[in-house]
């Protein structure tokens, strides 16, 4: 049964009729075709489907559409693209932090949620922030360095303003 729901997705206000028992990840991927959010384990263990809901990271495989009424949601598509790249994405490229890439949208969003709250995190903070995102390829080291680099770049940019 479809019901009305309103929320903000990547800074765009949406008011739609949808099945509210649908998982958020299915709504994003299947209905809106925002396939940057990846489905890994479907059990909230791997973090591949991470999105930001009201400033906090969440596994979109464990969130039902009905739970996000009025919320602000950010997916990887809300950060940037090839033409307008986000400093975190740029730092991941520069550090060589990406291998197969499947965990990366979730990693980048966990990094963003961290840096939005704490613009100069130390190594332990960074490790903790991405501890809910599993990566099989990289051993996390270059991802940690990329987040460090992004935090420095973002701070510099802020100071320039």
């Amino acid at each position: 049964m479809k019901e009305k729901i309103c929320f903000t997705l990547n800074n765009k206000y949406l008011s739609i009729d949808a099945d509210l028992s649908m998982r958020l990840i299915d709504f994003l991927r299947d209905e809106l075709r925002l396939t940057g959010t990846k489905e890994g384990c479907s059990q909230g263990e791997c973090g591949a489907c991470t999105v930001i809901i009201d400033g906090k990271t969440a596994n979109s495989c464990l969130v039902l559409l009905g739970q996000i009424e009025g919320a602000h949601i950010t997916t990887i598509e809300g950060l940037g693209d090839e033409n307008n790249i986000h400093p975190i994405q740029q730092a991941f490229i520069e550090e060589g932090a990406v291998q197969c890439g499947y965990c990366i949208p979730g990693m980048v969003l966990s990094a963003k949620a961290l840096l939005d709250k704490n613009c100069g995190p130390d190594k332990e903070y960074i490790k903790r922030a991405i501890s809910g995102n599993l990566c099989r390829c990289t051993g996390y080291k270059k991802i940690e360095k990329a987040i460090q680099r992004a935090s420095e770049k973002m701070k510099e940019a802020e100071n320039d303003d």
Partner: peptide
């Protein structure tokens, strides 16, 4: 057969390399 029982390291488990 899932990540809650099949354990792989997180960022917290990794040493400096």
């Amino acid at each position: 057969n899932n990540f809650s029982k099949y354990i792989i390291p997180t960022s917290m488990d990794m040493p400096d390399i």
